[in-house]
Design a protein around this nucleic acid. Structure first.
Lengths: 409, 409
DNA sequence: GCATTATTTTCAGTGCTCGAAAAAAGGAAT
DNA sequence: ATTCCTTTTTTCGAGCACTGAAAATAATGC
């Protein structure tokens, strides 16, 4: 765990410090970099020169001289052209593939709906390869410098992070994704759980939440939750949970996963519909539910229909008790509710808050705060974007000077 | 989070590497240290000389020359006299205080029972101070080099780790422990949750468990669980849970904590007795239960008494579902069962294993292994001992060379 | 007593950071 | 147009840590 340090690891660490400071705070002059990182001007000069020599950073082309006195500051920024990344988001509804450059700018994006025919024609790995090929055709130059592919999925990853051992999207269970894609494009390929990305993205989107642990709950066709822990980068693999399949009631309602009593069986779209309409226990849960049917039920509950209100109460109770159980293991300071079900939050709020309040940890430390963020796409994308750029930075931490790349002096 | 590295931080890191290698593997020669740490002989010579100059390490006095050819190796070991630590364990039954030296050897130990009179006469902080004073009287020389006091407690710590916001031992709720003790002895004082120490200690006691996350469950007058995560030292504060007060059944049995349906209300000694004897819900849970009464119930169950068997089934079910819920948040690879209730494990095993097996994560990844370790004292003490010595080592990491201590050449 | 062998220290070389001084690059003033 | 001023950036020398190789050390064996 602990390992030898030498001069090289010092340089590596400080290169990382420079890159992550630029990543976090944006382009800035060498002087600003020195004070933001705490390194001396001399070191910034050396490290900056090295990174520019390797074309990882570039000197800003537009020096915004604002009528100040002395030598004008030159901003250092990421060389957006040095490499690119592809970000793939898969869920029940669509496959969205985005090409970004090293500065994090969106270069191109494609999106296709997920249809029954899609998975009938090809395996998930092949579908993703095909999606990325399309980006390649449209952006041949950029794709020549592709360095990493990041994919967001739902389900349980295998230990190596190569594929899905289980997924709520049936066709994806047991599929290896990383291997076919890595072989097709010859670049690093990583898999990320959606819930975790959601929480990381929420931290970026709401900086005012500060350094507390954040739990992000997704309510929709599934129920998912991820946690973002302060201090660790996106690299840490903790915080990837199977919240939706935490048992709420022993021998409870039937869940799509085959177990009984999961939170999802009460709080995902199909769960709420089943309890509202009293679907008999023998009927297995539907694979998908039309969005309209769920919206209709929300509307019914909002207009006072008893069975609908009751169903949302049960859903809130399941989520609330799930969160109260989470409080005993790894208490978040803040909870973010997202997804299509966020629109029904007011219908569940009382039950969620009451379960969350009536647990020992909340009574002692106060309950976590809750906010609602209806759209889940943006935080997921942001979380994966930042995590992927961080990973790219990290590959450059290691590439210290003497690697054949000319050093500009 | 990321910070500047320089020559000093390199030396600090490598000093830490040397100390933690010696801590883990025991005394060894410089040559062995070089290959165990990966540092060069030259660096070991420099770092070792520095640490010996500071009297943190010493050359072994008894060189075990075993008839080998060349220059005999000299073992380097911790200077046990350089500092000492006091370890205090508090639970419902006793207060045990142990004085150890820097090499981890037990120097002296006192133990007193916890009686109702004890807490009537003095506040917990004062009681501990008095206990340590006794060690001081008996070991005045050793206590002159006291560097740290570590205390194991049950309950919820305040954010700063200074005191208990809540504790199952009534007299300890809301008590600040660290401040009075630190002021009395003028040394660093740390509070540790028992469950967490148990898990850390289990990792030390069962090295064959390797690098998996370990959950240690204590069953007795309370139910507690701590997790030990691989890779992080004992410093990480995650893994301290309130498992016993995780809700098992909404609106369930009355718990001592004032909530309903906690795991403890079914699986702690009082919980099992209440369900076995059908104690009416209005009767509040007893503050303590005689050990004999619990043992008697175990015996009854073992000899086939229906109500007793049923009570242990309910207890196993509560623990099993608790663990299955844990599996969705932070799945352990191994579960260790300890405490007085470990003697009744066979009565609970079927329910625990069935709940643990029938959850999605176990179905996909296989259920965690379970072992029983009846005694809980040893792992708790070992966990705290190692964590405290690590903390002492860490204070010496920072003390690099130029601090006035003569450097021997 | 001298060769042999294994351990430990010393030495020269290299890389990194830092503080101070020098160089660079414009605007302002004469 | 030239010189002064101000601020940024680079260069230089010192100090420290690590490494590999060579030297010193401390026994054993003949």
């Amino acid at each position: 765990m602990r390992s030898v340090a030498d001069a090289d690891s010092v340089r590596r660490q400080n290169r990382g410090l420079v890159l992550s400071t630029l990543r976090r705070l944006g382009p800035m002059s060498r002087t600003q970099l020195a004070s933001a990182t705490g390194l001396s001007h001399a070191s910034i000069s050396a490290i900056g020169g090295e990174l520019i020599g390797q074309a990882i950073l570039i000197d800003g082309d537009a020096p915004p001289a604002a009528g100040l006195r002395g030598r004008p500051a030159v901003e250092v920024r990421f060389n957006r052209h040095i490499c690119h990344a592809v970000i793939v988001e898969i869920d029940v509804n669509r496959v969205r593939s985005t090409l970004i450059d090293y500065a994090g700018t969106l270069v191109d994006r494609t999106e296709i709906p997920v249809t029954p025919e899609l998975f009938a024609a090809a395996r998930p790995g092949a579908i993703i390869v095909e999606r990325i090929r399309q980006l390649e055709q449209r952006n041949p130059d950029e794709m020549k410098t592709l360095k990493i592919i990041a994919i967001s999925v739902q389900g349980i990853l295998d230990r190596a992070g190569d594929g899905l051992k289980w997924s709520p999207i049936n066709h994806m269970s047991g599929e290896s994704l990383v291997t076919p894609i890595r072989e097709a494009f010859g670049v690093a390929t990583t898999l990320h759980k959606r819930g975790r990305l959601l929480a990381d993205g929420a931290r970026l989107l709401y900086p005012e939440l500060g350094d507390q642990p954040i739990a992000a709950v997704f309510i929709g066709s599934t129920v998912a939750m991820g946690m973002s822990m302060p201090g660790r980068g996106a690299a840490s693999d903790s915080g990837a949970t199977e919240f939706g399949h935490m048992n709420h009631l022993p021998d409870g309602a039937r869940c799509r996963c085959g177990q009984r009593g999961c939170i999802e069986a009460y709080a995902a779209d199909y769960g709420v519909l089943r309890s509202a309409y009293g679907v008999p226990d023998q009927v297995p849960p539907a694979a998908t539910v039309p969005a309209a049917a769920y919206q209709e039920l929300v509307h019914l509950a909002q207009t006072g229909r008893r069975n609908a209100i009751h169903a949302f109460n049960l859903a809130g109770r399941a989520i609330g008790f799930g969160l109260s159980r989470l409080m005993t293991i790894s208490p978040p300071g803040h909870i973010l509710i997202t997804g299509p079900g966020a629109g029904a939050f007011e219908l569940m709020r009382a039950e969620i808050e009451s379960a969350l309040r009536d647990c020992l940890v909340s009574r002692v430390n106060g309950p976590p705060t809750i906010t609602v963020h209806h759209d889940e796409r943006e935080p997921i994308f942001q979380g994966m974007l930042m995590g992927t750029l961080d990973a790219l930075d990290r590959t450059y931490f290691a590439t210290v000077s003497d690697n054949g790349i000319a050093r500009v002096r």
